[in-house]
């Protein structure tokens, strides 16, 4: 670090120049901030002025649905595992048609730091962060959202994706060998090559 600096200011090895340079640097700093005094503040006056946030900005979390309208989350526990503040908890269970679903799914928004890791970990695109950041409550218990509070009736981003069309397990969506990129099941009892 220090060697870098001496390299850059090669002729400045002389203490006099060094001091002069430092003073110049300090001076330019002070000048910059002083100039700021004359600039118009960039502050936006929330709540009078509301900015439309980009689609990918991260705030209140929702659980989206499959193209066929069924719950998309397979309760794989990946989001709860990755969550750095452990604010997601759930219980998986067997659902209709051989699917795996969440018996309950809870996010404690008073702990969530909106880091988006859950969304990144989710293999089914079920959990998604939305730009809705105005999610404050007077009572902290109301910040604990259950599955019904989280479920929305659309697919969010990736709204064409259906995990059960890709997974190998047999469900009422696709049986063995009927998933994307699968051969029909083999006959194990045949000895033909």
């Amino acid at each position: 670090m220090s060697s870098d600096r001496t390299k850059k200011t090669k002729p400045a090895d002389h203490p006099g120049t060094l001091i002069a340079e430092s003073i110049k640097a300090l001076g330019s700093g002070f000048a910059t901030t002083a100039k700021h005094l004359l600039r118009r503040p960039v502050t936006e006056q929330y709540p009078e002025q509301k900015r439309v946030l980009p689609e990918r900005s991260r705030a209140r979390i929702v659980l989206t649905r499959d193209p066929d309208g069924r719950e998309r989350c397979v309760a794989c526990y990946l989001c709860s595992a990755v969550c750095p503040v452990s604010c997601i908890s759930m219980q998986s269970t067997g659902g209709e048609g051989g699917r795996r679903v969440a018996a309950w799914f809870r996010i404690n928004f008073s702990r969530c730091i909106y880091c988006g890791l859950c969304e990144e970990a989710c293999p089914t695109s079920a959990i998604q962060l939305t730009p809705d950041f105005e999610n404050c409550r007077q009572d902290i218990l109301e910040m604990v959202f259950e599955k019904d509070d989280l479920l929305v009736d659309h697919g969010g981003r990736d709204d064409r994706y259906c995990f059960y069309r890709h997974a190998g397990i047999a469900t009422d969506t696709a049986g063995k060998g009927e998933h994307v990129n699968e051969q029909p099941p083999v006959d194990a009892k045949s000895n033909l090559p």
Binding site: T33, H36, L37, R40, P41, V42, T43, Q45
Partner: peptide, 8 residues
Amino acid sequence: LARLQVRL
């Protein structure tokens, strides 16, 4: 401080 940092 706010003005120095172009805030309100």
